Amino acid sequence: MQVHEIMTSSVHIADPNMTIREASRWMRDDDVGALPVGENDRLIGMITDRDIVTRAVAEERAPGNTSVREVMSEGVCYCFEDDDVEGASQVMATHQIRRLPVINRQKRLVGVVALADISRTDDECAQDALKDISAPAARERH
């Protein structure tokens, strides 16, 4: 099975200069925990509900004055829409992330695949990924 068959294709792309209040409202309205962040037609990071809590709320930063850029996770792991689901789950496991932007071969964002999406189609694959995603690590997870 290929990633495009299970991904969510309607995805907001957060601007790095928007406030975390705006990003949080998009997350709430779309019922998601992460948004890709794009600038100049390129993905530059991800903003997660965890980023907002640990880097803004915990530091008592004002949600109306704090930009996405200030708290987002930089660097983007991704997969291609024609990758197989097992490959996407391996990327998630390796980088200990639960959500993965999906791009086409022209490097345009076409969706996001989540561990939950994989679990609905390949429970064994998702369980294997979850073991690695949940393992203690020195780096912060998405």
Rank of each mutant, 00 (worst) to 15 (best):
V3T: 12
H4A: 11
I6Q: 03
M7Y: 07
T8G: 09
P16K: 00
A23D: 14
W26M: 15
R28D: 12
D31G: 12
V32Q: 07
G33R: 13
L35E: 07
P36Y: 07
V37P: 05
G38W: 05
G38E: 07
N40H: 04
L43G: 05
L43R: 09
I44S: 10
M46T: 11
I47G: 06
D49G: 07
D49P: 02
R50L: 08
V53Q: 09
R55A: 01
V57N: 05
A58Q: 08
E59C: 02
E59I: 00
N65L: 13
N65C: 04
S67M: 08
E70D: 14
V71N: 01
S73W: 00
E74L: 06
C77M: 12
Y78W: 11
D83W: 15
V85W: 04
G87V: 10
A88T: 03
S89T: 12
Q90I: 06
V91L: 10
T94L: 09
R99G: 01
L100D: 00
R105P: 01
Q106H: 13
R108G: 01
R108Y: 02
V110F: 07
G111R: 07
V113W: 01
I118E: 06
T121K: 08
D123G: 13
C125E: 11
C125F: 05
A135R: 14
P136L: 14
